[in-house]
Amino acid sequence: MRKTSVLLATLGLAVAGALLPITSAQASAACDTAWNAATPGRFGAFEDINCAGVLGSDADNDPNWADSVGSFQGSDNDKASSLLHKGNSGLAVRVWSDANYRGNFGCVTKGEKYVSDLHDNYLTGGTGSYRAWDSISSHEWVSEAYCYGAFLS
């Protein structure tokens, strides 16, 4: 039987550039350390800013951070305050405000390495926007093309 595709739920909604930004030119020493220590191929999320308080990490997708399946479970839901990308070339991580890759999304790219503080940041992918902190409920690996572009490709 067919597993419901993660991409089906999200195709066509990626009409807005949605990179998760920073506003300061300063790097986070703690996130540098976390990135250096992270296993290649994985994405990580943290309860606190500056990559502190590991919620979990994943080389795969997780459509529901609130359930008891996958790398993020139960209390991990709506808790993340910083993110880290140590994945493979060509892949971005899309984090979503709702389970099953719904709601609003933001992208973390490999070149960006990490987002050290999600507070005062917004998930602008999809319709409208939603706060990025304490709101992430699912994540998926996508080709970077999902995070850029124009209204009509």
Partner: peptide, 18 residues
């Protein structure tokens, strides 16, 4: 995921309002 426990919190807010 991590080889070392990363617990240090640096008081530098790298992400600000967008």
């Amino acid at each position: 995921f991590f080889d070392t426990c990363v617990a240090a919190v640096v008081a530098v807010a790298v992400v600000g309002c967008t």
